[in-house]
């Protein structure tokens, strides 16, 4: 009886999820073997085997997007984890009145990513931006610099913008983990004469280890998949310097209308990511579900 009830309750969601997640993925997969171009639909969509894949793997733009995605992900993980950890540690100090910062520091996370991207564009404006104003006043640069117009600086600033937007997530994760550390441990260690570095390494880090693994994997996956910030800020420019797989696939599909080719790139992107997702699900979440 109970068993049936459970299935009855779960079945609609299962049905919906299969319909709208599995079916589209299968469609996408199948499409990647066809010359499915919206502009030549009237000429039909012939089966072309692996051509889309070989084309992608031979395409220097695809590989540039791949490497950009890798750097984009790594630097985001580094930035978000370090900033998140630092802030979590500060907020966790037993000092009066720290609570207020918790709310303030959450704010970037509440800003919709499209708005955040616009705010950063304005901050980095080549003429009237605040960043240029400060940099000129401090004498760092002689005159305003087009931050998003130069490849290296564009790459750096999109990362900064996204770290700014997303670090509260890891700060929250670490904050929650820090709360589970019994305070007596620190006191006992202090009595034993352990310095603050030693306490950090021997107590805090071991307690945080699991959360750090979780944060790193989740940020890896979400950054790898992210699209909005880069799309709004640079559209992948200048000349592909900030092009990541997500923006490249979007362009192939909705600006060049080649859905087949875009699908093959999507499948490759999922394949790259699958390794991380699989490890995460198996090693981290699998244990928890039990």
């Amino acid at each position: 009886m109970n068993k049936h009830m459970g299935f009855f309750l779960v079945s609609p969601t299962i049905a919906v999820m299969i319909l709208v997640i599995v079916v589209p993925l299968v469609i996408g997969f199948v499409m990647s073997f066809f010359n499915y171009n919206l502009l030549t639909l009237h000429r039909g969509t012939p089966f072309i085997g692996l051509s889309n894949y070989t084309r992608a793997l031979r395409d220097s733009n695809f590989w540039m997007a791949f490497w950009n995605t890798l750097w984009w992900t790594l630097s985001n993980v580094g930035g978000q984890v370090l900033l998140g950890l630092g802030i979590a540690l500060l907020v966790n100090q037993r000092v009066k009145g720290v609570g207020i910062y918790k709310a303030l520091i959450l704010i970037p996370w509440a800003v919709p990513s499209a708005v955040a991207a616009l705010a950063w564009m304005w901050l980095l404006h080549p003429e009237f931006g605040f960043v240029n104003d400060v940099a000129v006043r401090l004498g760092l640069i002689g005159e305003p610099f087009p931050w998003l117009g130069r490849p290296l600086s564009a790459q750096v600033w999109v990362v900064i913008a996204r770290v700014w937007k997303e670090f509260p997530l890891s700060a929250l994760i670490f904050h929650a983990a820090l709360q589970t550390i019994p305070y007596d441990l620190y006191e006992a260690a202090e009595v034993d004469g352990a310095g603050s570095w030693k306490r950090f390494w021997n107590i805090t880090i071991p307690y945080l280890r699991a959360s750090i693994v979780v944060a790193i994997t989740l940020i890896t996956i979400w950054t790898f998949n992210s699209f909005n910030m880069i799309w709004v800020m640079t559209r992948g420019g200048p000349r592909g310097a900030t092009e990541i797989l997500a923006t490249s696939i979007y362009k192939t599909a909705f600006q060049r209308y080649n859905f087949g080719f875009a699908s093959s790139q999507s499948i490759l992107m999922v394949a790259f990511l699958a390794v991380v997702v699989f490890l995460y699900l198996y090693k981290v979440e699998g244990k928890r579900i039990d």
Binding site: I21, P24, L245, A253, I267, L273
Partner: peptide, 26 residues
């Protein structure tokens, strides 16, 4: 059940852009 839970989690890990293209067709 476990498989289903995994499936739920996994759906959150696919790039949205990968869904967008077949979604557009559907």
């Amino acid at each position: 059940e476990k498989l289903y839970l995994m499936f739920i989690l996994a759906t959150r890990m696919f790039p949205a852009v990968v869904f967008l293209i077949p979604f557009f067709i559907v």
